[in-house]
């Protein structure tokens, strides 16, 4: 496809807003609709838009695959860590009340952290899935499938 300046400029303009909206949904989970999962999806949608317009190779330079591989389990760890922390502090698993001196405060903090864990995992997981599937069945501009052998610039997968 040739130069597509409209899509490029509008995308540049919109991506920060999309990501900001995702984080807004993330941190206002206890005030309105939303929370971790929705925020993760919107955040991943912003990254996917970037990958769609600027190409998979550019996107995977910005968002390294090993970072995603760390972020996916990190979110689960945060989630479980909050549960274990509340166990250690003398409550039940994911019993937020004991996380701070004041139960209401503790619930706030607990929900925020758990939602953050969910959001990180969902965003990183969806981006990983997109990256994994978008590279399949690559075609060159003439329409022929690009195999790994025919494309020596592509590094072999580890």
């Amino acid at each position: 496809m040739k130069h597509h300046s409209i899509l490029r400029i509008i995308t540049k303009l919109l991506i920060p807003l999309i990501l900001l909206f995702a984080l807004y949904v993330q941190f206002h989970g206890d005030f309105g609709p939303g929370g971790g999962f929705q925020a993760g999806v919107i955040f991943a949608a912003g990254l996917i838009l970037y990958a769609l317009v600027f190409g998979l190779d550019t996107a995977s330079e910005v968002i390294k695959e090993w970072v995603l591989m760390i972020l996916v389990p990190l979110g689960v760890l945060i989630y479980a860590g909050v549960g274990v922390a509340s166990l250690i502090l003398g409550g039940n698993f994911l019993d937020y009340n004991v996380l701070a001196h004041d139960p209401v405060h503790g619930q706030h903090l607990g929900i925020l952290l758990v939602e953050l864990g969910v959001g990180v995992t969902v965003a990183a997981g969806l981006t990983t899935i997109f990256f994994a599937f978008a590279g399949r069945g690559r075609r060159n501009p003439e329409g022929a499938l690009i195999t790994k052998a025919a494309n020596p610039t592509q590094e072999p997968q580890r």
Binding site: H3, H4, A45, L49, L52, G55, F133, G135, R139, G143
Partner: peptide, 25 residues
């Protein structure tokens, strides 16, 4: 947001047959 991204994704898929093709610098 999702509406716009979905439209772009579908169009790209029908234009190039691949989501990852680099079309913009």
């Amino acid at each position: 947001l999702i509406n716009f991204i979905g439209t772009i994704a579908v169009l790209k898929f029908f234009a190039v047959g691949d989501f990852g093709y680099q079309q913009e610098s």
